[in-house]
Nucleic acid binder design. Structure first.
Lengths: 255, 255
DNA sequence: TAACTTCTTCGTACGTCGTACGGAATAAAT
DNA sequence: ATTTATTCCGTACGACGTACGAAGAAGTTA
């Protein structure tokens, strides 16, 4: 058996009294708080993405030497863990509507909006679930949306996962477009303008009847960036239909 | 207007005759082919993940100097683009079953299996869609599964996106667990063994009735790694139910 | 007051990464 | 034989995360 992960104490620092009131401590007064560090990291990640968040850059933003950050956080991975929990804590969780459809949709839409507001959440990988207080709060809130509607425990988890992963997926597709634009420095339209000629030449003799027709239609429909939500609406409609039908098949007369 | 992206010619190299038959060329005979380079990169990414794939490591694997790779590929990003298209080309696309439900499910399951076989696909970001021949083939194949079932063009794209992003999402959740295990060097069970005590201490006084109950149930159910597919089955069942219901509401009597 | 302890701050340095640059080697074209 | 196009690759630069240890600040103790 190994030692427990020290990041746990940091994650729960605001809810564990013994950690919160540090009392009189030796050494120089810290220039900033851990909250400041994590907030600044979130700010930079919001602006430039998680990959562009460097320890040096963060330190400079806080007017600190690079290595000073390591008094607050053991390593970059732990910083990301703290960022995730802290940013989840910012959104106040709305109450669950009485209408079941609205309740289920809200779970997915909240996830979608949060990933839109903080796209770097989509870049986070390798993080053990169930770590921080706000992550736990969030899971509890999500489960409350599907509590008492006729699902067993495993199905509750599956339903939440389905809704959450769909909201995340739509946000990810949207973010992929923006990431490609940022990386190449040109919008989709500009890329097409610059490449459609070469693409036509290179694809000469290869037909994609469906992809050509549908891709064009979808491309035009999604021209207005705000219309990305149509995909969210469509998929969410189908998913919730499916979930409600599943419940109805269990205990007819409800829902 | 800027120049067309040179990676297009590389992507379509096997389908454009003028590119394929290089003819007599000057200079030393290349030690390897571009296909060799990309195949080796796929092999390394399969083993260690995309983040661990370095140009130096790949070059060493091919018994080349590090900078030699740049005669085959302009930069690492282009290499990843080529990897994606090339790995998609490896899976032979099955025919579409007559049964509509099976047809829809197959789209999602193929995506899931492919992401399981090549988890680094989940790490790929910022890639412009619609680039390579195999990506185009794939999109065409996916659309064929939903062609002629009563959806308009935009809905066809939405339905495919829904199925594909669900398959990807389940694979991603699965991969997240494996990534956390690899990164921390301990399995979920080992992590729990080492941390449940500290976690209980730090969470003292905070109740998560639903999360505790459901998380435990889900954790036990998913103990056997193969049971991750239960989530795929559940979600896919609901999604396809919803899609079929949507079609039925359009033109009753079909399905 | 002086010594000790503990804590924060941070400069230096190492090994990694992608890749810009330029030169050497090679083979076809002239 | 010379020119030209191409492959190969050693060196080097600026980023990255972070190990290490010194310098200094503030509380504790003698």
């Amino acid at each position: 058996m190994t030692e427990p992960d020290p990041v746990l104490r940091l994650l729960w620092r605001h809810r564990v009294p013994a950690v919160a009131d540090a009392g009189a401590r030796r050494g120089p007064r810290p220039k900033v708080t851990l909250d400041d560090v994590v907030d600044a990291a979130i700010e930079l990640a919001d602006r430039d993405g998680l990959a562009a968040l460097s320890m040096r850059g963060l330190a400079q933003h806080l007017h600190l030497g690079a290595m000073t950050l390591y008094t607050y956080v053991a390593n970059r991975g732990d910083l990301v863990v703290l960022m995730v929990d802290q940013v989840l804590g910012r959104t106040t969780l709305p109450g669950h509507p009485a209408d079941l459809r609205e309740r289920l949709e809200q779970v997915a839409r909240l996830q979608y909006e949060e990933c839109r507001a903080h796209p770097w959440l989509l870049e986070v990988t390798g993080v053990r679930a169930w770590l921080g207080p706000h992550v736990a709060d969030r899971y509890e809130w999500q489960l409350a949306a599907v509590e008492g509607i006729g699902l067993d425990d495993v199905e509750m988890d599956q339903a939440v996962t389905l809704l959450v992963s769909f909201g995340t997926g739509v946000a990810r597709a949207e973010q992929a477009v923006r990431a490609a634009e940022r990386e190449s420095g040109m919008t989709d339209a500009e890329w097409w303008e610059a490449n459609h000629e070469a693409l036509a030449e290179v694809m000469a003799g290869h037909d994609y009847p469906l992809a050509g027709r549908v891709g064009t239609a979808a491309g035009e429909a999604y021209q207005a960036a705000s219309d990305q939500r149509r995909e969210l609406d469509f998929g969410l409609g189908r998913i919730v239909d499916g979930l409600l039908a599943h419940l109805a098949s269990r205990q007819p007369g409800r829902g």
